[in-house]
Design a binder for these strands. Structure first.
Lengths: 336, 336
DNA sequence: GTGAAAGCGCTAACAC
DNA sequence: GTGTTAGCGCTTTCAC
């Protein structure tokens, strides 16, 4: 017996008016007499009336909802970006529908499909693992903006990301400035972001005349993979580690300490992202910080713009990351 | 010019059949001839037909969607619970609509309102900050289950949580077993979960004959508040700290190390939750671990059950937490 | 100002 | 097996 929720019709009969007047009144139309408005509002309140979004969406052919795919809920990076998206989007009267694919392309596609069945007016992908073709075809018929990746471009699709190559350079410049030379990059695995950071690493090393010291150890974007990668890296006797992201950097630091070495006295570690979780000494990580919420806000702005004008040319916005020096990097240990 | 998406009507005319047949065929009804089915499926594929969830929802008066409110996306605890919810819910053909209120009651209420306008069939609250009255009235007309809190009960509402009092006892038993006596509790602020953990702490201390050593320092559930609380706690010269949650424990450890003390050699620290982020040495935290995904799964099961039978009596399920000994607790330092 | 009526895309009787 | 029809709750002309 799901006791039926009151509809606009119930409100109308209670207020002694017509459905249409109720609709007008509730949407704040000026062409409703004060008297009617009051009657209607009262009736609605008494009934506990709540508009049916599905019905409205059907009728106006707009959902006022935008779909958001988050790559991985467990990485706080994405939560912070989402914050930015939400604030911006809400201000403009839109809701969001949130899904995750857990880095699984198939699942991601399925979730996006669901989003689209719900008639979202646009899609913000806070990173993703979709094949190029799939992404292109999605972007071809629904306004799409991708955050943190700019490797795939498509006609109807904007991207908002930080410049990973430049960010990686900042990291290396910082380390070299501290006297480091045997700097190893712990990669984040086989994904575009990690590759870009590798590129920046190599470029910077080369620029500093350290080309022959370039060493890339395969890793991943999680603490566990960072840990293992660091273990492997220690064999190379580095004085500093540049790690693909903050989470993996935590793992790396753990591995270093387990090997009875100290950070930063024996080995410096620098991460990437600038996440805030557990922000103190233990997580007192020197890092390349992205303006996360800002990325989200920008993405939402692009989305909103694109919703009102679907034929906008694709835009690719870069925001810059910045070096945040905290406690895990220090001068290179004098060799003896 | 949002080029109109094909509707069931378009599919029908392309396949040369009626709308209803298309509907039947697409929902896999057996009473559709093989020939028609093929025709229809082909037409749908060619057109790139995608059903309109809003229309279906209106028509069948069911959304097959459940709304999920997450207290705070930045705390990995909730992400892990969500994992459990999602897997379970998906298996039963439901979608989820996810929102956050950022620990802000007003926002939480607004988000739940949105969820309800979208006609979600139930609400899973992965913690919340709602006033009792509001929660009760929500639960009164939509199936609701609350995870991680069992302090508020209401007729139509299930709860799934761990036994925080028992968990806190485990923590204290562990510390006392290691010889600790001056054990300080860093509270998580003024919220039910933190209070329960305080209760367990006091009870256990008393049981061990340490009633007069009970010391509760006010804190919070974030790293920053944990840091500050630990600074204050150090004045009390404790040998061990029981911290309200893992995140705050990270902060506490940071404060201890900044005071040039070592964990666990000088002071032991135990947290609560069992989050996995950054899981290594630095975060090699001894803790009371909740079966997070399990909590989510259970919650979803309750929800599903309650959706099919709205008049089920309220159920309150407890799952038990367990002590996970890692690197931040050790024997009490011999006094000299 | 207000109401009647049509229609959004879909499902579900009900005929045939 | 298949088509016709009504209707889900809402918005939106269009008369009045």
């Amino acid at each position: 017996m799901p006791r039926d929720r009151p509809t606009i019709h119930d409100v109308a009969s209670r207020a002694g008016t017509s459905k249409s007047l109720v609709s007008l009144a509730l949407s704040g139309s000026p062409k409703v007499s004060e008297r009617s408005r009051l009657l209607i509002e009262q009736a609605a309140a008494e009934l506990g009336y709540r508009p049916n979004a599905a019905a409205r969406s059907l009728s106006v052919r707009r959902s006022r909802t935008i779909g958001v795919l988050i790559l991985d809920l467990h990485n706080p990076v994405f939560a912070e970006i989402l914050d930015g998206v939400q604030t911006e989007v809400r201000q403009h009267g839109f809701s969001t529908m949130l899904v995750t694919g857990g880095e699984n392309p198939t699942l991601e596609q399925a979730e996006i499909e669901t989003l689209r069945e719900f008639q979202v007016e646009g899609l913000i992908l806070i990173s993703h693992r979709l094949p190029t073709g799939v992404l292109r075809s999605i972007a071809a018929d629904v306004p799409t903006v991708v955050v943190t990746r700019d490797d795939i471009v498509a006609p109807g699709m904007d991207t908002v990301s930080n410049d990973d190559v430049a960010g990686a350079r900042l990291a290396i410049d910082h380390l070299v400035g501290l006297g480091h030379a045997r700097i190893v990059y712990l990669s984040g695995g086989d994904n575009p972001v990690s590759h870009l950071r590798a590129t920046g690493y190599s470029a910077a090393m080369t620029a500093h005349g350290l080309a022959e010291l370039i060493q890339i150890v395969p890793g991943g974007l999680t603490d566990a993979t960072g840990y293992r990668a660091a273990e492997a890296a220690l064999e190379l006797n580095p004085t500093a580690l540049f790690v693909a992201n903050d989470i993996a950097a935590f793992g790396a630091i753990a591995a270093i300490e387990n090997a009875h070495l100290r950070v930063p006295e024996d080995i410096s570690v620098i991460g990437y992202d600038g996440i805030r979780i557990g922000g103190m000494r233990r997580v007192n990580l020197t890092t390349i910080a992205q303006p996360l919420a800002e990325l989200g806000r920008r993405a939402a702005q692009h989305m909103l713009r694109r919703i009102t004008d679907r034929d906008l040319p694709a835009q690719h916005e870069h925001v810059s990351a910045s070096l945040v020096i905290r406690g895990t990097t220090g001068p290179v240990k004098p060799t003896n």
